[in-house]
Design a protein around this nucleic acid. Structure first.
Length: 182
DNA sequence: CACCCGATTATCT
DNA sequence: GATAATCGGGTGT
């Protein structure tokens, strides 16, 4: 039902990051459906982007970033947290992805509260680590094809007005305006 | 809300 | 050994 196709992700990483705002991230755990509107993203490039995990070439951790667009790249960081990206790049570049930084929960809110062990709606999924915890995403989901998965995918939403800012939480390439937020 | 800091581990561009 | 695409608890305003 209006799932975003691979062609959506096979475009410039920055464009995809911007257009993902307003789309709906879907997650199915057993028979439970969780979803939320994507309200914050960041684009990560390749050898043009020192802040990207793909910078410097293919390694064990970043393999999905070099694979087909539309697949998930889920990594572990800071010793505690998982973060989810969708691989997105045009055919001219070898790697790139979009970090999904925040969603506004729509479905499965009770289950998200359980996963997060928090009751406050406002802090359920308003950050990349929180979002991954709310949706129970781990490296087990690394590499999933979101254009063809029944546990993790993205559906088309409304095109909404978007704020553009520098990326956060990074120390390199801070000049790039590759963060998009509702 | 702002700032500070500890947690905890994979990776080191 | 240092750093990291982060979070949450503490303290102060």
């Amino acid at each position: 039902m209006n799932r975003l196709p691979r062609s959506f992700f096979e475009r410039d990483t920055v464009i995809v990051a911007r257009e993902l705002i307003g789309s709906v991230l879907m997650r199915k755990i057993g028979d439970q459906l969780l979803s939320g509107i994507i309200i914050e993203t960041e684009a990560y490039g390749y050898d043009n982007d020192p802040a990207s995990h793909a910078y410097g070439g293919k390694r064990k951790r970043n393999v999905p970033l070099f694979g087909p667009s539309g697949h998930a790249y889920v990594y572990f960081t800071y010793g505690n947290h998982y973060c989810m990206n969708v691989v997105a790049k045009n055919s001219a570049v070898q790697a790139g992805g979009v970090l999904i930084r925040a969603i506004e929960p729509i479905q499965g809110i009770a289950l998200m509260k359980l996963h997060r062990n928090k009751d406050d709606m406002r802090i359920l999924a308003n950050g990349p680590g929180k979002l991954a915890q709310a949706l129970q995403l781990t490296t087990a989901h690394n590499g999933i094809d979101c254009t063809d998965s029944d546990e993790l995918w993205i559906v088309k939403g409304k095109q909404l007005p978007v704020h553009i800012t520098p990326r956060i939480g990074i120390s390199k390439a801070q000049e790039k305006l590759w963060r998009f937020i509702l």
